[in-house]
């Protein structure tokens, strides 16, 4: 059982972090960040999978390197780039590398990234990928043998299966229904898209109260007022309230990190009683993680 699963099962409020593999082979800086600022502060570290469809180093390799350094990874998998053969094969590969936590995601469309002319795959969707994990765990796969019977695996993996949800988006009801489906397909934990409005989040949490899965609220660090405005314009399902934007624009340049850290800390402490953990997306400001946790009073 993964540490993440254990801690959540024990009812602990769990914090996870996130790193993004570099575009290239220079992985030393990101590994340094993880060892220096995340290893002793968070339970597990997500490794993004070709995030925003911008081609970069792979999630599985980085997950493996985190394990080597005593850090538990959450292997993010998007459905955009691989068909069901490759997805299942990568799941088996991840399992033999000791990766247990896997997060199933649809994945941003290729036109959002830097290879807009690429062929988008989406052979499975995020629900189908969770189902695939469940079936692999049962010792079978998505295929059929010549007689039409399920194929048998020589050795079955075990995962701690996660998924994502957008609680503050345009249509929270559609999101809630899809989350119900994900849980039915095997999801065991949830990490949300960024939340800045605890009230809306609370309403959403009430709506999905009947689901027996821990939900980690997503916290994305706001590095500047400009970034907050950009997110409001361009990131679907994310609304940064005016008062937070004002806090950032009023802050002197040198104070921004401090203000941003405080905002994250406050958000977590406001929501920590209505959810089971927080997922911190610092976008490179991993050195702020220890202070965020302190500011949250955890």
């Amino acid at each position: 059982m993964s540490k993440l699963q254990e801690r959540l099962a024990a009812g602990e409020f769990v914090v996870t972090g996130e790193i993004g593999p570099p575009k290239g082979t220079n992985i030393a800086p990101v590994l340094h960040e993880a060892e220096e600022y995340l290893k002793d502060t968070v339970v597990a570290v997500n490794v993004t999978d070709i995030q925003t469809a911008v081609m970069r180093n792979g999630s599985m390799a980085l997950c493996h390197m985190l394990i080597d350094r005593g850090i538990e990874p959450v292997y993010q998998m998007v459905c955009r780039d691989r068909n069901r053969l490759a997805l299942q094969s990568d799941l088996l590969s991840a399992a033999v590398l000791g990766i247990e936590n896997v997060l199933s995601l649809t994945g941003d469309h290729v036109v959002m990234g830097d290879h807009q002319d690429a062929k988008p795959v989406y052979d499975l969707d995020s629900v189908g990928l969770l189902k695939a994990m469940t079936i692999l765990e049962e010792g079978s796969d998505l295929g059929r043998d010549m007689k039409g019977n399920p194929n048998a695996l020589d050795g079955a993996p075990t995962f701690f299966k996660g998924c994502c949800v957008t609680p503050c988006g345009a249509n929270p009801e559609a999101q809630a229904i899809k989350l119900e489906k994900k849980v039915e397909a095997g999801a065991q934990f949830v990490q949300t898209q960024a939340v800045y409005d605890p009230k809306t989040f609370e309403t959403f949490m009430k709506r999905v109260e009947h689901l027996d899965v821990p939900i980690l609220v997503g916290i994305v660090m706001l590095k500047s007022a400009g970034m907050a405005k950009y997110m409001n314009r361009s990131v679907p399902g994310v609304q940064v309230p005016k008062n937070l934007i004002k806090l950032l624009s009023d802050a002197a340049r040198g104070d921004r990190e401090k203000v941003s850290t405080e905002i994250c800390g406050n958000l977590i402490s406001e929501m920590k009683d209505i959810c089971q953990g927080a997922h911190l997306m610092t976008l490179g400001w991993d050195h702020c993680v220890p202070d965020i946790i302190e500011a949250a009073g955890l």
């Binding site: 459905c79 955009r80 649809t106 941003d108 469309h109 959002m112 988008p120 989406y122 969707d125 995020s126 629900v127 189908g128 994502c164 949800v165 957008t166 988006g169 345009a170 249509n171 559609a174 999101q175 229904i177 899809k178 489906k181 898209q193 679907p236 399902g237």
Partner: peptide, 18 residues
């Protein structure tokens, strides 16, 4: 994305696709 199990997280506030 020809998804078969419901919406992704890309729906914009005005109901358009990402």
């Amino acid at each position: 994305k020809s998804l078969v199990n419901g919406t992704c997280g890309g729906t914009q506030d005005d109901g358009s696709c990402e």
